[in-house]
Every structure is written in structure tokens, then in C-alpha cells.
Design a protein around this nucleic acid. Structure first.
Lengths: 206, 206, 206, 206
DNA sequence: GATGAATGAGAATTCATTCAT
DNA sequence: AATGAATGAATTCTCATTCAT
């Protein structure tokens, strides 16, 4: 409510992301988070009902930045090249998602937490803005109407493919989640592949 | 060493995968695992130096099945269609990876554990057999020499794209890790997309 | 001192009794009490040095009402019947004591608090008025001089018996402290018993 | 199960009664109890699901001794005098109940715990033995048939009166629950009063 | 080999109290 | 006077690990 309170809350959310990134979800204790935020442990509970709620808030705040970033993508249709636009969007996504990855992972892989997340309304949607898959899908539709992308492909499928691959790349074995640019070098080839396909002349779909 | 000992060890590994799948990594306690295996808690420490070693063993045993399964893929080059072969291989991969997903996730997202994994030699390689990316890459090379796949694409890149996308799909938000077939329906479209590409006539690479 | 301050103080005392009755002493936190009183938590400490002092004040305020109520009992000697007078007095006592029972219990059963209570001067005495045991004792003496009660019994003992039994009844297992009239039905028989005794013809005191 | 385990469990129950008596329910922490029992804090949770269950067990074990003690009372009908028999029984009750009083109080005055107690089946009944009120009631009936007690009084009412008064006496303000014999001196007069009554010649029931 | 009781170092959470506004 | 954010010590409970049997 007060200015000081809001500041503390923001510091706690930032500290949560930092600590989870540095030591992993399992070792992101309330003590460590409070320490990183420069407040007492008990202060956490003035701002969040419990630890999981703090993690949800942290994940949500990360998602929002990400969603806002992607919302402008459809407007780029027709400018530069399709490759460049997608590459750039995915690269931004990679950076933004980087520091909330462990959080998303934990939030999705712990059944108890997943259950609770569903109990909350609309987990990570910013009102009025399209979700990441939706934003990319709209961009592709716009390019399709310009003829820069084939009109007979399902833009939702492509969007899902790109995002899944990006997500998968971030988790590739050997990747250190705390290093600055883990698999960003893979984004270019990935985009080109999806644009051009690999089918040879001797092959045809069943 | 003895028959009884080996049986116990196997039961512990199976129990580990079961428990992690059911309650998530965070709640997969030694007590729960021992209970699921039908042994006393202390027995775990007769077979594994500590809990993390048990988890490594469980992950490794899952990977082995997976690697053995994929090893035969290159031999299928030329038979059926490329789409069918890849679809089938990815579908098998999906099933096999399903139940060790939370384990891999935890093992990759906990910095302390990741460090320790690197300290071990060759984490998940079966001697003599290619790793999954390598197996798919070899299959694609074989198909390229038959003309069923373009020869000018980097087969390693394609392999990485397919596996990353598959991995990403398994984690798509809303996916329940314990349900039988989460996103297997996405595999077909994914393969077709990668084979055909999406580039329209009005676009060309920069 | 000011009107507003006195009001707040009174509301805090009332809220304390309410909260203790509803959730029990152990869960009567300063937060809950402040909330029930409609003030901020910190306000408590403007009116009371600490939580225990607030509880003492609440208990004392309850005792005062009780003592004032009983003070008129001796004047009833000779009117109505002894049974009726005692029954009525005990019934009133039951009602008044009902909502400060948990408080008294906690205040008496916690050694640390009991010690502190003794350190305070004259815990629950209203200047000029007799304590409850004293009031009943005086009433009985008055009735004895009228011949309605035997003159050879120690009125203090009888008073103690009646009050102890009443207190004990209020705590009988299965009694829900928040229900309106727990064991008020037992008061009549109790009084008659004490008046008439139970000794048969074949028995005599040693 | 094992001998050592049973011993530990018994020590924990004894320690619980000791600690509660010494420092009061509110300060009977798991740490203090474990310390008094000479075990680690975690050991408590091998024997009891939680702290409340430990308290229930402690209260129950006390009740059992008490119930067994009183079960033989009816057999004393006709021997000695009624005064002596009742006095002695109440004195024993006083001693036995002394050390589980704070426990019973807390267990009865905390709504949350009371609720949970009802969820358990038959809180403090020893199979085959009469409850304390029942035992006294039976004794009185036996004396009534011998003519040593009036046959027209409700023995259950008398039993309730005696026990309530005893319970009330134990809690009399100023009584220190840790001192050896708090109000045992009151038992004799109490019994005589109940036997003889106080009604004078000039009074009669309405 | 197997058992399971015991350990003890934390973990999350609560709560009376303080203090800047 | 009142507020309510912040504190931090204390509390209950968990859990990987050890060890006597």
C-alpha cells in the first residue's frame, strides 16, 4: 500500500528471481531470498501469504515483461526479412525467459504447485495483450497475407514449433542456466530450417 | 552383487522413477522411495552412496532404454516415408522420456547437482551406441544420400531442432506430466513442418 | 485519557474477550484482536504495555461485572427461598463467567503469567465490594441467622463448594465454551443437593 | 515396535506431562519435551504424527491410570464409612489428575484441538471399565441399597457434584499447579457437606 | 544384506513488539 | 493518537543420513 511497502515487495520479487537463478529452485529458501532482498525473513509474509505465492508473483512479473515485448511483433510484418524478424523476436524471448526458466520449470514440474496454479485464475495473461504463441501466430498470418510466408500452413503450429524448440534449447543438457548466452547461437539456424524445410526431391508426404 | 542385492537395487531405481513422476522431485523423499520399493529406508544407502547418486542411476537407466531404442533408426532409411519414420521415432522418444522428465529437469536445473554431474565421467552414454541427436542425425544423412532429404542442410541442426521441439512440447504449460499422452498429437504436424518449411514465394533469405 | 483514547481502550478489551472466546487463548493473537477492535496492531501498545497486560485488563473488567452483580446477594436473605436465591445467583455467575473462562484458565495455568499476576497488587478486587466467595458466604450467614440454613456449618466451606462445583461444571468434558448455555441445567440439582445432603439413616460420620 | 522404540515413546509421554506441569501448556515446546526425554526433537515425529497427537497420548495415558484406580471403588460399599471411602477416592483422584490438569485444560479450551478430539473415537475410555463419574455413581447406588445413603437422590447428580467441585478446587485462584498438595485439605469438608446438607429447620424447598 | 529408530541441521511460518511516518 | 511495515526470535515439522541390532 505505502511507497515503502511497494518497494519492499518489488525487491522481494527481484530477489526471488536472482536467488532461484543462482542456486536453483530447491535451494531458494526464504532465508536466502530475504537476505538477497535485504529484509528480514518475516517480511516476506507481510507481502505474500506463503512462499509459493511469492514464486507465482515472480514468475508472473517475468511473464508480463515478456508478453509486452512480443506484443509489437505483428506490426513488423513486411519489414526487414521474415528470418530477421523471427530471429530477433526469439532472441529477445530467450533473454527474457532466461531468468525465469528455473521458476517455470519448478512451477510446472511439481504436481502440488501445478494444481494450485490452476486454482488461480488466468496464470500468466496480461489483459488485452496476446500470449506469446498468439503474437507469433498473428505475425505469421500477416506475413502470409503479404506472400512472404506460405498461406497453407497453420500459423499456430509454426508458432508452437518455434517456441517449443526455443524452450527445449534452453534446457539442452550441458547448458548452464546462469551463463549469459547459452544457446542463442542456435536460433538463426533454427529459424532458417523452419522457413525452408528439409524435404528432398525424392520424397513426398504419405 | 548377489541376486537379492541386484533385485533390490533394480526395485529402488524403478521406485525412484515412479515416485518422482507421481509426487514430483521436491517430494520424492527417501522415505517415499523406500516405501514404494518395499524396503527400509536404510537399505538405500547399501546400494547408493547418497540420494543424488540414486537419482543419477535412475536417470541413466531411463536414458539407456531410450538410446537403445533409437539406435536402430538409421537402418530404417529408405523404408516407408521419412515422415513416418521420424514421427514414429519421436513418438517412442516421447513415451520413454515421459517418465524421466521431472528427473532430468531437476538434475539440470539444480546447479549443485549439475556441477556434480559434470564431475562424473560421461553421464548418459551407452558404450558403442550413438546418442539420440547423433542417431537422428545419422538417419537423416542416410536419407539424404537416398535423395529423400535435401543434402545441403546440416543434419545435426535438424536433429537438434526436432529434439528440442519435442522436449519443449513435453513442458508446454497446462501439460500434466502424469497423464498418458500429453502432446503426442503435435508430433505429426511438427515433423511435416520441418520437412516442408513455410517460406512463401515472396520471401528470400537475407 | 481523551474520549477517543478511552473508547479505543474499551474496544480492545471487548475484542480481547471476543477473540479469546472464539478461537481460544492460543490463537488470540495481537493481530486478531486489533482486527476485531478495528484498530491497527501497533495501537494496542499505546494502551497496554504488552499483550499480557491487555489480557489482565480484560479478565479484570469481566470480574468487576461479576463482583458487582453478586454484591447484592446478601440483601436477599429471607426473601423467596434459599434454593431460588442461590440458583439465581449461580446462574448469573455462570453467564458472566462464561466468556472470560478461557482467559482465566490461561491466566491461571501458565506459570509465568500466574507469577506475574501475583506481582500485581490485588488482582481482581473491586474496592469496597466483597469477592464472590465472600458474598455468598455473607448471604449464607444471613440466612443462618434467620434459621433457613443450619447455623453449625462453615459458610465459607459451603460457598467454596458451590463455586468450585460451578467452575468444574463449566469445564466438564464435551462442553463447548462457545455454545450459549452449557451446563446451566445442572445448577438446580446442585443447589438442592447441597441444601439437603445425601446421608441415609444407616450411616453416621466417623 | 522394538523394545527401544517403546521405551522412547514412554519417555516422551512422561516428559510431556512433566514439561507441561512445569512450564505450562503454552511453553511446552517440542524442543523442551525432547530435551526432557533425552532424545532429539525429530524423534518425536517418529512416534507421533504431530505435537497434538503427543499431547492426546499423554492425556490418555493419565486418564487410564485414573480410571483403573477408581474402578474398584464400588466394591468398597459397606466397608469403613461413606465419608472415608469418598474422601479417599477423591484424594487419589486429586493426586492422579494433578499432573494432567494443564493438559486437560488446554485440550478442552482450545477450540481447534477440541474439534480434533471429537474426530477421534472415544477419547478417554478404558474398555470394560466405568468412567470416573460412573464408578462413583455405582458406589453410591451400592451404599444406597445398604441404607448408608439416601435412596431417593440421583447418584449421577451427586457424582457430578463431587467431581465438578474437585475439578473446580484444583483450579481455585492462587493455587499453584506445581505445588505438591494444593487443595487436598478441602476434600474432607466437601464430602461431609455433601453428605449432610445445610438446610435449616426454617427452610423448605419450593 | 536389511532394518528402522534416532539424529540434527535446516525449512517455512508465526507473532509480539518496535518505530518511522 | 494511530498506523502498519518491518523485525527476528521462536516454533513446528521434514528429511537425508547414521548406526546398533
Amino acid at each position: 500500500m505505502t511507497k515503502r511497502g511497494d518497494e519492499t515487495r518489488a525487491r522481494l520479487i527481484a530477489a526471488t528471481k536472482d536467488v532461484v537463478r543462482e542456486v536453483g529452485y530447491a535451494h531458494a529458501t526464504t532465508k536466502a531470498i530475504a537476505g538477497a532482498a535485504g529484509v528480514a525473513e518475516g517480511t516476506i509474509y507481510r507481502h505474500f501469504p506463503d512462499k509459493v505465492a511469492l514464486f507465482f508473483s515472480a514468475a508472473l512479473s517475468g511473464s508480463q515483461a515478456l508478453i509486452e515485448e512480443l506484443a509489437t511483433l505483428p506490426e513488423l510484418a513486411g519489414s526487414a526479412t521474415v528470418d530477421e524478424n523471427l530471429e530477433h523476436a526469439l532472441a529477445r524471448l530467450l533473454v527474457l525467459r532466461q531468468d525465469l526458466l528455473p521458476l517455470e520449470l519448478a512451477l510446472n514440474s511439481d504436481p502440488e504447485i501445478a494444481r494450485r496454479r490452476q486454482a488461480m485464475d488466468a496464470p500468466d495473461i496480461v489483459p488485452g495483450l496476446p500470449s506469446p504463441p498468439e503474437a507469433i501466430s498473428r505475425y505469421l498470418d500477416a506475413e502470409a497475407s503479404l506472400g512472404r510466408v506460405r498461406a497453407d500452413v497453420d500459423s499456430r503450429q509454426v508458432s508452437l514449433l518455434l517456441l517449443s524448440a526455443l524452450f527445449g534449447l534452453m534446457l539442452a543438457p550441458g547448458t548452464d542456466p546462469s551463463s549469459p548466452h547459452p544457446a542463442s547461437a542456435q536460433i538463426g539456424p533454427l529459424v532458417h530450417l523452419v522457413l525452408d524445410g528439409i524435404r528432398g526431391s525424392g520424397s513426398s508426404r504419405a
